[in-house]
Design a protein around this nucleic acid. Structure first.
Lengths: 250, 250
DNA sequence: CAAAATATTCATCACTCGTTGAATAAAGGA
DNA sequence: TCCTTTATTCAACGAGTGATGAATATTTTG
């Protein structure tokens, strides 16, 4: 008596508020479960059976829908990148338009880069949170980083760097590339949310408090860019620099 | 006829320049091989047999010498941390002493934190390079980060943060904790050396060029700290901030 | 040298791994 | 309705997993 028209899942319009997850097609359930588990234990730390058990589907469906475990991993990574990057690009162009006929402030450029990610990780739901934790691992992995990050984010990054160069006229391009690398390192570690800052600060800061990051990261990074592009003395400062203290490692 | 006294490996004094690696005790060979392979594929991406095969020793020796795979991983992580951190701490205190009766420059504090690592990764040999790539993965891993980073690096980090607070009087402690998090994110991504900046920059920057990082990171981070501790307006700037663009993720 | 402690080898255990093919069920189009 | 396509289930394969206990070799100690 409860459910009448359950045979046509396509007409899922008035989806029941309860057990809505079970109503999702198996392919999506696999993506969701894989996202959550890959983010926690990495590609090799999760078995296909772990994923299908969490998704409540048969093991064979991973091969059927995606072709194999590696392809599933790539699909998990691709899915949200394709939702996310158009908005980031749109926000960048909006910032650029708003600043005409001048150039945007560095803070606004960096913010267009980071805000759509921080916002989703903070309030987009558990799936987005897992996704960015996964990005944090992939970005620092020599096995996956050069493949997946380059494939799904580099076109966007190139546009950001072009706008950064507009906003920093006369600055050597190398400074901007390094400045971007420092930015993405800071951002992705934030997404990992390992809770380390919580312990270090004695609870004063919480790694899950992405609003605090949003309030600070753009300013921090913008100041870093300016320091790289203005100063001319390359190394830190006086004494310590000229004392290399030759390490005696193996 | 070639090798005469090979039965007593203990008397290895005049070690042959060739095949000196094979002369190392098995325990060290396992640590070296594990370091290299764990750095490349992570804990779950490497089997005990991969490691012992690369080290040229029997599989059972991992359990015998370390107790198991997880304990080996922890031992790999601990080994070089114990060589590294005393020097970092010494360099920090040296910087602090040199600045008396004043406080050290932010650049010098950051440099004491990063230089011993960058220097070893650049010129300490392949083992150190692998080690820091491993640190990059561990730092971004929710599985290992909270355990290993906290255990082996937090005492040192607490001391650095204390000196940073001396150098930034009147600055809210939270700004310093967040600033430190951005620093360690930027630093560890650098160690991953994924080659992504090489592609992005069209060869203009090389991720293996840690001297370039050394010339830039401390300045970048110091400027970031100052920006966090001086400004009072929290968010990036005008228009873009007040346009949240509600994400519509699941 | 002999005895004790340490180090290494070998074979094997009970599981888990990703993938596959055949059989079954459901959905869509005529 | 029948037929085709798509989706899902089930059982199983061979290869690889970490760990272990007994046997052997090596080194250290007395």
């Amino acid at each position: 008596m409860t459910v009448v028209r359950r045979k046509t899942a396509a007409r899922k319009a008035a989806k029941a508020p309860v057990a809505q997850a079970a109503a999702k097609p198996a392919k999506e359930r696999i993506l969701d479960a894989g996202e959550r588990l890959f983010a926690r234990n990495g590609f090799h730390g999760v078995s296909v059976r772990d994923i299908t058990k969490a998704a409540g589907v048969d093991v064979a469906l991973v091969s059927y829908h995606f072709g194999g475990k590696r392809e599933l991993f790539a699909a998990v990574f691709r899915r949200r990148a394709e939702m996310l990057n158009p908005e980031r690009l749109g926000m960048l162009e909006q910032v650029r338009r708003d600043a005409l006929p001048g150039v945007p402030a560095l803070e606004d450029i960096v913010n267009a880069f980071t805000y759509p990610m921080l916002e989703r990780s903070a309030r987009g739901g558990a799936g987005w949170k897992s996704y960015f934790a996964l990005v944090a691992q992939v970005n620092n992995s020599p096995e996956w980083g050069p493949v997946l990050m380059t494939e799904h984010f580099d076109p966007l990054v190139e546009r950001f760097i072009a706008v950064l160069r507009e906003a920093l006229p006369g600055c050597d391009a190398r400074e901007i590339y390094w400045g971007y690398q420092f930015l993405t390192g800071a951002l992705t570690l934030t997404f990992a949310e390992t809770g380390r800052i919580d312990k270090l600060s004695g609870g004063l800061c919480r790694s899950s408090d992405l609003d605090s990051v949003h309030q600070r990261l753009a300013r921090y990074v913008a100041a870093g860019f300016r320091a790289l592009c203005t100063g001319s003395t390359p190394a830190p400062s006086g004494k310590t620099r000229s004392r290399p203290r030759r390490p005696r490692g193996p």
